[in-house]
Simulated scan of single mutants.
Amino acid sequence: MTIPHITPTRDDALATLLDKAINNKTKPLGSLGVLETVAKQIGLIQKTAQVELAQPAILVFAADHGVVAEGISAYPQSVTWQMVENFLAKGAAINVFARQNDCALYIVDAGVNHEFGPRDGLLSRKIGPGTRNFAAEPAMTAEQCGAAIDAGMALVAELDGDVIGFGEMGIGNTTAAAALMHKLTGIPVAECVGAGTGLTADGILHKQHVIEAAVARHAGATEPLDVLATFGGFEIAMIAGAMLQAAERRMVLLIDGFIVTSALLVAARLQPAILDYCIFSHCSDESGHQRLLDNLHARPLLRLDLRLGEGTGSALALPLLHAAVNFLREMATFESAQVSEKSA
Score class of each variant (00 low, 15 high):
residue 1 M to D: 10
residue 2 T to F: 02
residue 6 I to F: 09
residue 7 T to G: 07
residue 9 T to H: 12
residue 14 L to Q: 11
residue 15 A to L: 07
residue 15 A to H: 06
residue 17 L to R: 12
residue 23 N to I: 06
residue 25 K to L: 13
residue 26 T to S: 13
residue 28 P to I: 05
residue 32 L to E: 08
residue 36 E to G: 09
residue 38 V to N: 04
residue 41 Q to H: 01
residue 47 K to C: 12
residue 50 Q to V: 08
residue 60 V to C: 15
residue 62 A to S: 15
residue 63 A to Q: 10
residue 63 A to F: 09
residue 65 H to C: 14
residue 65 H to W: 10
residue 70 E to I: 02
residue 73 S to Q: 07
residue 80 T to P: 11
residue 85 E to T: 13
residue 88 L to S: 06
residue 92 A to F: 08
residue 94 I to L: 14
residue 95 N to E: 00
residue 98 A to D: 01
residue 105 L to Q: 05
residue 106 Y to S: 02
residue 111 G to A: 12
residue 111 G to Y: 07
residue 115 E to V: 07
residue 116 F to Y: 11
residue 119 R to D: 04
residue 121 G to Q: 14
residue 122 L to A: 12
residue 125 R to K: 15
residue 126 K to M: 01
residue 128 G to N: 13
residue 128 G to S: 15
residue 136 A to R: 14
residue 138 P to W: 03
residue 140 M to F: 03
residue 146 G to K: 09
residue 148 A to G: 01
residue 148 A to H: 03
residue 153 M to W: 00
residue 156 V to L: 04
residue 157 A to K: 14
residue 159 L to Q: 08
residue 159 L to I: 00
residue 164 I to P: 00
residue 164 I to D: 00
residue 164 I to G: 03
residue 168 E to S: 11
residue 168 E to H: 04
residue 170 G to Y: 12
residue 171 I to E: 03
residue 172 G to H: 05
residue 181 M to T: 15
residue 183 K to L: 12
residue 192 C to F: 00
residue 195 A to N: 03
residue 196 G to C: 01
residue 197 T to V: 03
residue 198 G to E: 08
residue 202 D to K: 09
residue 207 K to E: 04
residue 208 Q to F: 00
residue 213 A to T: 13
residue 220 G to R: 05
residue 221 A to R: 09
residue 226 D to V: 06
residue 228 L to D: 02
residue 232 G to P: 11
residue 234 F to H: 13
residue 235 E to S: 07
residue 241 G to V: 05
residue 243 M to E: 09
residue 246 A to G: 03
residue 246 A to L: 05
residue 247 A to G: 12
residue 249 R to Q: 13
residue 251 M to R: 08
residue 253 L to R: 09
residue 257 G to M: 01
residue 257 G to L: 06
residue 260 V to T: 12
residue 264 L to Q: 01
residue 264 L to W: 06
residue 265 L to E: 11
residue 268 A to E: 11
residue 268 A to W: 02
residue 270 L to C: 02
residue 275 L to G: 05
residue 277 Y to P: 03
residue 283 C to I: 11
residue 285 D to Y: 07
residue 286 E to H: 01
residue 295 N to R: 07
residue 297 H to A: 13
residue 302 L to E: 07
residue 308 L to V: 12
residue 309 G to D: 10
residue 313 G to H: 00
residue 313 G to V: 02
residue 315 A to L: 08
residue 316 L to Q: 14
residue 316 L to M: 15
residue 320 L to M: 14
residue 320 L to V: 01
residue 324 A to F: 08
residue 326 N to C: 06
residue 328 L to D: 00
residue 330 E to W: 06
residue 332 A to K: 06
residue 339 V to L: 01
residue 343 S to Q: 05
